[in-house]
Design a protein around this nucleic acid. Structure first.
Lengths: 137, 137
DNA sequence: GACCAATGCAACTACAAAAGTTACAGATGA
DNA sequence: TCATCTGTAACTTTTGTAGTTGCATTGGTC
C-alpha cells in the first residue's frame, strides 16, 4: 500500500461492509481482501471503533461490523476518525521574528484551515451507503 | 518544519513576495525567515520556477522574485506546481480479486478524485495577492 | 474444563519520503 | 579576479507508517 493508505483502507472496508451490514467480518478476512496485514487492519478499524463507526467483538465468531446504518456514516466521519488533517499544517515556525510575519503566518494558516473545513464539508455530503451502490452517478 | 512543509513554505514565501514584488530575495534570506535551509528553499522554489511562478537569477545580486503579477498567481497554481495530490491515492491494491471488488475500488478512487478536483477548484479562487493584504475577511 | 478463534496491544523491524547538510561547479556582476 | 549568488549531487538524519511477531484476554463450542 502507499500514501493515504489508512483512509483508503478504511473507505474500502466500510463501503464493502455497507453492502451487507450485520455480517461480521474478521480482521484476517478484511486484510486478505485489502492485501495487507490483520494487525494493520485492527489498528485502522480500532480508530473507527473509537469514533463509534464500528463495533468489534472478541472471541469465537467475533469480528467487526458497522455500528449504525450505512446511510448515517459519511466520508467525513471516516476522515475525522482517522485524524488525518490533509491540508492544514499542525504548526509552523515558532519564531515569527516580527509582528508582520506573525500576521502573515496566521493568515496563511487561516486560509488552509478554511480549505480543510471545506474539504470536510464536501466529504460530509457523501455516505458510505452511496459508495457501495452499483449505480453511482 | 513538519507536515505539508513544502506547501506551507511555498505559500509563505510567495505571500511575502506579493507584498513587495520586484524585490529580489536570496534563498539565504528566505531560509532565515522560514527557519530552514537555503538548499531546501531552492529545492522548493525550483519547482515553482519550473511552473513559471518564479524567476531566479544567478551570480551577484541574484536571487528570486515573482514571474508575474501576484493577482495572477492562485493557491492552486502553487499546489499544482508542487505536485502534492493530498487527497487522491496514487494507486491501490493491484489484485482486485473479483470484479465487484474492482468496481468498488474504482468508485472509491473516483470519489477521492472528485474531492481532489474540488480542492483544487477552491484553491484556485484565492490569489497570493489576497494573502498579503492586511485586511482579509 | 479444555480448546479454539477472535480481538487488543505492545514491541520490534523495515522502509520510504522528506528535511537537513555538505560540497562544489557554474554564472554574473563589482 | 573576486565575491556572491544559483543549481545540483551526494549523503545523513529524522519521521511516519506499514509490516511482523508474540502473547494476554475474551468468549463461544465441544
Amino acid at each position: 500500500m502507499k500514501r493515504n493508505s489508512r483512509l483508503s483502507l478504511a473507505l474500502h472496508t466500510l463501503s464493502h461492509m455497507a453492502g451487507d451490514p450485520g455480517r461480521m467480518r474478521t480482521s484476517a478476512d478484511i486484510a486478505a481482501h485489502a492485501g495487507t496485514n490483520p494487525v494493520v487492519v485492527r489498528r485502522v478499524l480500532g480508530r473507527l471503533r473509537e469514533a463509534g463507526l464500528l463495533v468489534s467483538e472478541k472471541g469465537h465468531a467475533g469480528g467487526w461490523r458497522l455500528a449504525r446504518d450505512p446511510q448515517d456514516i459519511s466520508l467525513a466521519d471516516v476522515y475525522l476518525a482517522l485524524d488525518e488533517r490533509l491540508v492544514a499544517t499542525t504548526d509552523m515556525d515558532e519564531t515569527p521574528s516580527c509582528s508582520v510575519e506573525h500576521a502573515l503566518q496566521k493568515r496563511v494558516t487561516g486560509v488552509l484551515e478554511e480549505i480543510e473545513e471545506n474539504l470536510v464539508k464536501r466529504l460530509g455530503e457523501t455516505s458510505i451507503a452511496e459508495m457501495c451502490h452499483t449505480e453511482h452517478h
